[in-house]
Design a protein around this nucleic acid. Structure first.
Length: 555
RNA sequence: GCACCCGUAGCUCAGCGGAUUAGAGUACUUGGCUUCGAACCAAGUGGUCGCAAGUUCGAAUCUUGCCGGGUGUACCA
């Protein structure tokens, strides 16, 4: 389409321009362009005049059933039914064939996943899939701390809880990944409290912190404390996997801090020698550039300990080594935006080939609705599992089939996180999330199931030919179906899933309008209409699939 | 102080490579199921797109300045 218009314009006015086509209101046509208005200045003619010339030229083609000029000079184009139907099979996806590292979720070991992780895991999973569908290779990674003060507090809490450095007593803890994570979390709370309360304990925990580092640097596995550490560390990893299974998302490679730290440290030593890092007040820092609004950040503290900057550099190096990525996409909370700018700037200084290969996306925080009854019951929920369980309880009231409860629960949760543009805070209203009405996951799932059920009721074979004359309702539906690839393209180029949600919802509404006034089964056009219903159901299924949401055939 | 993000209907949000009459959901009002799944559909109420200038034939969209909210700003992550 665009090319055809570009060609026409070139012929008429000898001007090269990229024509932008938009989807206007149905009353205007299937496509519209304001090219004539843009040309007016360059050609020195009245825009309506230009538009008429272009329109005349387009009218010669059989593809268009109607070309009109409206308003100040818009060209509205209506396609012939055959062309409209044929366009459904045109896929506007580009094969990029690049290698991507996509990093998201990033929970710390020895802690439970909270709401932010839930949001980020789901969004990250969708982003990775979107990148993959455009023909790229994707390596999913997640990065978190398995060493550090939070681990020391936790380990101290374990010792206190078990009344000694007794790894054998760990068998007292209930043997499921979630129960173990819960227990570890309780130990952390105990340790964190003790750390604040007494200076003596604080000193002990600080010492413990060093001991834990030594478990890695000196490869210590046999002391009772080391056994406790390595065992519960593995519990943490098992818990992450269990959670990702529960969410039915792809697993990512978990890269623990202990692994990136030595890499980061060696980069720091190397860059200190090259002069890219400087010593300042006893610390090793990357000096910011005022003109670029980059602030100075510490890479190694005055006490010789690496900061997260160093560990993050380590992750980048490790991923580059492991995957030789062409591009790297990182998803974090938006509080890390400025911090990451500095890390990226440092990475690009150290290794210029990385310049412009890394993208940092940020997500806002999940806010819970206030005022509603359900939200007050949720209270100050921050654990991911609590959100999951609460939504599941609500779904249980509405879905009878036990086997579908998790599917619908995940449909609701994933959709509500996917439907917002990335970046802003999102309001999480429990009632709206599980509501099967409105722009929600279950609404789309239900719409799909309903369409499949209509299909199942007929014994005729769906059939469509390009010569079939569409009636008004059918035509609207076909037009909307044709916008699917646009929505996917927008989502992949913007790396934002909300375009898909908006589209799927609009499509479902369009279908419901069609279905309301059009008889399918028993109609003389049954075969063609079944074909449309099938096409519609497939589109819903594929779109939900991109969002990582299953589309059951009945519910 | 400086930097970044945000400000669109009562609420939650799309739209922002300028363009035909600013859209959805929700809430509220009304109408529609003895016929394919009404978790639906139709109609209505509701907005000086934070404010003010500027660029343009044309600005929610681009520029600048304000106001308001959030976040970050050297040894935490």
């Amino acid at each position: 389409m665009e090319q055809k218009l570009t060609h026409v314009i070139k012929n008429l006015f000898d001007v090269d321009m990229t024509v932008v086509l938009t989807r206007p209101e149905p009353q205007f046509g299937d496509w519209a362009t304001n090219a004539a208005l843009q040309l007016a200045g360059r050609v020195g003619k009245n825009p309506r005049e230009i538009a008429e010339l272009i329109a005349d030229s387009l009218r010669e083609s059989r593809e268009f059933s109607e070309v009109s000029v409206a308003g100040p000079g818009f060209i509205n184009i209506r396609l012939g039914d055959g062309t409209l139907l044929a366009a459904l099979d045109e896929v506007a996806r580009t094969d990029m064939s690049r290698v991507y590292a996509v990093e998201y979720s990033c929970p710390n070991a020895f802690k439970e996943l909270h709401t932010g992780h839930l949001y980020q895991t789901i969004v990250g999973d969708i982003l990775a899939r979107l990148i993959e569908t455009t023909g790229n290779t994707v390596h999913r990674t997640s990065f978190g701390g398995d060493v550090g003060l939070h681990v020391a507090k936790c380990l101290w809490g374990m010792v206190a809880t078990l009344d000694g450095e007794s790894p054998e007593k760990l068998s007292q803890v209930e043997e499921t990944p979630f129960a173990r994570a819960r227990w570890i979390s309780e130990c952390y709370v105990k340790g964190a409290g003790a750390y604040e309360e007494s200076d003596e304990t604080k000193a002990v925990i600080d010492e413990l912190n060093k001991t834990i580092y030594a478990f890695h640097t000196d490869d210590i596995h046999d002391t009772p404390l080391a056994q406790m550490y390595w065992t519960t560390r593995q519990w943490s990893f098992d818990y992450f996997d269990a959670f990702y299974d529960l969410l039915r998302v792809d697993h990512m490679r978990y890269i623990p801090e202990s692994e990136t730290m030595p890499i980061g440290m060696s980069v720091v030593r190397e860059q200190l020698e090259k002069g890219n890092l400087k010593e300042s007040e006893g610390a090793i820092v990357f000096e910011g550039d005022e003109s670029k609004h980059l602030h100075t950040r510490v890479f190694v503290t005055g006490r010789g300990l690496p900061t997260y900057e160093t560990k993050d550099i380590g992750v980048i190096w490790l991923e580059k080594e492991a995957y030789d990525f062409d591009r790297r996409v990182l998803l974090t909370g938006n509080d890390q935006q400025e911090y990451m700018r500095v890390v990226f700037a440092a990475a690009e200084t150290f290794r210029p080939e990385l310049t412009d290969t890394m993208t940092h996306l940020t997500n806002g925080t999940v806010r819970f609705g206030d005022g509603g009854k359900m939200s007050s019951r949720l209270g100050n929920v921050t654990r991911a599992i609590d959100v999951f369980d609460t939504v599941r309880e609500k779904v249980r009231e509405l879905v009878q089939d036990e086997a579908l409860i998790d599917t619908v629960t995940l449909g609701a949760i994933k959709y509500v996180f996917a439907k917002y543009k990335l970046g802003g805070d999102i309001a999480f209203d429990i009632n709206e999330t599980v509501s099967l009405a409105g722009n929600s996951g279950p609404y789309i799932q239900y719409a799909h199931a309903r369409a499949r059920s209509v299909m199942a009721k007929s014994d005729k074979a769906p059939e469509m030919t390009e010569r079939y004359a569409l009636d008004a309702g059918e035509r609207e539906l076909v037009r909307k179906l044709g916008e699917y690839s646009d929505a996917v393209l927008r989502a992949t180029t913007d790396l934002s899933s909300h375009h898909i949600c908006n589209y799927l919802f609009e499509l479902a509404q369009e279908f419901n309008r069609f279905y309301e006034k059009t008889r399918v089964i028993g109609s003389e056009h049954e075969a063609q209409r079944l074909w449309l219903v099938g096409r519609y159901a497939d589109t819903l299924r594929d779109g939900l699939g991109l969002l990582g949401i299953e589309a059951p055939t009945s519910m």
